[in-house]
């Protein structure tokens, strides 16, 4: 289990990347980190990989502090959002390099994965395409069989077919070995497909951390119409994130389960009331909009 307790991380003394963050990631979870740019997602991943040292709080994996702890770090594999660092290696050399550090490394698994993605062993990674580089490090990571896999912008550069393959590799590892994967991605569709739990970060704080179903079930898009005009203030019992009227049809995004939301409209005799589940991307956009991180300004501008 991963625990972040009151973790604070600052950069250069004047920028707080994480501000008293508390987060728990249960074992065997596919955990998605969502957030705006600079929200602190990569910082969390680097703290978990033992790269960064927090200024305050504790970063704990399975009861042990991560920083400067080779025992824990040998069970964690971190893939960052770049692949340039592997350029001088061939896939074989890179595999052999990591093999030395990860006690559970499986040659068999590596070969199996490699044959799936059909990567050459003796070609320099510099000569790979961006997607191939990504595949290379992902298959090495999975072959290392870590207990915790941290992926920053996990699917960046992969073509649709490869995305499916990589996702399947991840899911298999999660199911087979109880791998805990912490994935940060701006591609929310991918997170939606792989993760069962997500956390939303903004400006160094965790807005929420819940299982995906709960997140999805707790926010709805409402399409409705009334005989008379209403404003947002006329629905005080609803936690409205977005309120828009287009001629006579209202488009409302509100937090709450279906029953709570329906109850919020009960006294207003809607002509019709449709509750549409939101995609993760929509949830992200509307949650961010509430925090003033919307595209509205750009649109207005």
């Amino acid at each position: 289990m991963i625990e972040l307790k009151q973790v604070t991380k600052t950069f250069g003394g004047d920028f707080t990347a994480l501000d008293n963050v508390d987060l728990v990631i249960p074992k065997g979870t596919a955990f998605g980190l969502l957030g705006s740019n600079g929200a602190g997602k990569s910082t969390i991943l680097r703290l978990l990989a033992g790269i960064y040292r927090q200024e305050g709080g504790e970063v704990i994996i399975d009861g042990e502090k991560v920083y400067d702890n080779p025992t824990i770090k040998s069970r964690v594999f971190f893939i960052n959002d770049e692949t340039i660092q592997y350029g001088n290696f061939t896939l074989k050399k890179l595999k052999n390099f990591y093999k030395g550090f990860y006690p559970n490394f499986s040659e068999e698994l590596f070969e199996k994965l490699r044959s799936t993605v059909k990567l050459p062993l003796d070609k320099k990674i510099n000569d790979f395409s961006k997607g191939m580089k990504r595949q290379a490090i992902v298959i090495i990571a999975i072959a290392c069989q870590p207990d915790y896999l941290m992926l920053d912008e996990a699917f960046d550069g992969l073509d649709p077919t490869m995305r499916i393959i990589v996702k399947r590799m991840l899911v298999d590892a999660i199911i087979d070995r109880e791998l805990t994967a912490v994935i940060s991605s701006h591609n929310l569709k991918e997170i939606n497909e792989v993760c069962d739990t997500v956390a939303l970060l903004h400006q160094g704080k965790v807005l929420f951390s819940r299982d995906l179903d709960s997140v999805k079930g707790n926010i709805h898009k409402v399409q409705t119409a009334f005989n008379k005009d209403y404003t947002q203030e006329d629905f005080p019992e609803l936690d409205i994130l977005h309120f828009e009227k287009n001629q006579s049809v209202y488009h409302i995004i509100a937090r709450g389960d279906e029953d709570t939301i329906r109850a919020g409209f009960a006294g207003k005799s809607p002509l019709f009331l449709d509750l549409i589940p939101l995609t993760l991307e929509e949830i992200f956009i509307y949650e961010m909009e509430v925090l003033g991180y919307g595209s509205g300004d750009l649109e207005n501008g």
């Binding site: 074992k27 994996i61 399975d62 009861g63 080779p70 025992t71 030395g100 550090f101 006690p103």
Partner: peptide, 26 residues
């Protein structure tokens, strides 16, 4: 946590010397 401790304890024989691959890489 108990799970973690037991997992660590399960694999002492598989602990590797990290220095050798590091030196080789160097």
């Amino acid at each position: 946590m108990a799970q973690a401790i037991s997992k660590t304890a399960e694999k002492p024989e598989k602990r590797l010397s990290f220095i050798k691959p590091y030196l080789k890489n160097s």
